[in-house]
Amino acid sequence: MPTILTFGDSNTHGTQPMLTRPSDLPRHMRRWPVVMAERLGWDLIEEGLPGRTFAFPDPEMGPHMDGRLGLFIALESHGPIDALTIMLGTNDLKAQFDATPEDIAEAAAFHLDVALSDEMQARHGGFEPFLILPPAPRALGVLAEHYTGAEAKSMATYDAVRAMAEARDVAVFDANSVVSVSEVDGVHLEAASHEILGVAVADFILSERVEDAAE
């Protein structure tokens, strides 16, 4: 049975929309990676960390929020895997980082280059990475101050990230095509959105594998 590793932030972890900060709500039981793996019939390894970025240590949440080291740890802790999803970028859009779309695309490129490296591919006997563009954040609720201007910046950011991934022949799925963030906090997904996204990502991966097999 194939194994898939899902590497991401709070929306991969399954954090519920937050009415207060910090929140004492449990994470969604049927978060999108669980739904996806169920539809695929594959084994699942979850590596979702709330607050994780592509490349920024967080002065409030800690240096371990920088996903670059985390990706190495995840890929060397588990395996062999047959596929990897990376869904990051939401936290990189926080106002405190003042990152340009090009900064974020360059940081995302580091992750794909690690995944595609001869060392990591050999370690797992070959696996296919998939990049997921996360739902665009909005400045709402208790997280509003962190995401001032993020929604507008996300469009240019996702264009830059998509171009970078396609240049590396990595398939990209845009979560914005099927779900949007909660009106409660402008960042996290409601339970229904996790169901929708999990099914959509599974179908996307299956279609990409069929296409690859036909080539």
Rank of each mutant, 00 (worst) to 15 (best):
E215M: 13
L69D: 12
R209L: 13
D98H: 03
H111D: 08
K94E: 13
N91R: 04
L133D: 09
P50I: 04
S10L: 02
A152L: 03
A163Q: 10
G62I: 04
R168Q: 12
L44S: 11
P134Q: 01
E183Y: 09
D98P: 05
F97K: 10
V172H: 07
R52H: 09
P101M: 01
V184E: 09
D212H: 13
G126V: 02
A74W: 02
A55T: 09
D98N: 13
F56K: 11
T20M: 04
T12A: 10
M87K: 09
A122D: 15
R21M: 13
A108C: 14
R138F: 02
P63K: 01
D24P: 04
A99P: 07
A37W: 00
S23L: 08
F204A: 11
A156Y: 06
L49K: 09
I104L: 06
H146S: 11
R21D: 11
F110C: 13
M1F: 11
N176Y: 03
S23G: 10
P137R: 02
A144P: 05
A214R: 15
F127Q: 09
T100M: 05
M87L: 13
P135K: 08
L143T: 01
E47K: 12
P17N: 01
A214H: 15
A191H: 10
E47N: 10
E166S: 06
F54D: 03
L40K: 06
F127Y: 13
V199I: 14
I132L: 15
E145A: 15
I132M: 08
S180W: 12
A122P: 08
A55Q: 08
F127R: 03
V179Y: 03
G14A: 07
S177E: 12
H64I: 07
D98L: 07
V142Y: 01
E208R: 14
E215D: 15
D43V: 04
L49R: 07
P80L: 08
E183T: 09
D103H: 07
G149Q: 03
G149C: 12
A200S: 14
S177W: 04
V35N: 02
P101C: 07
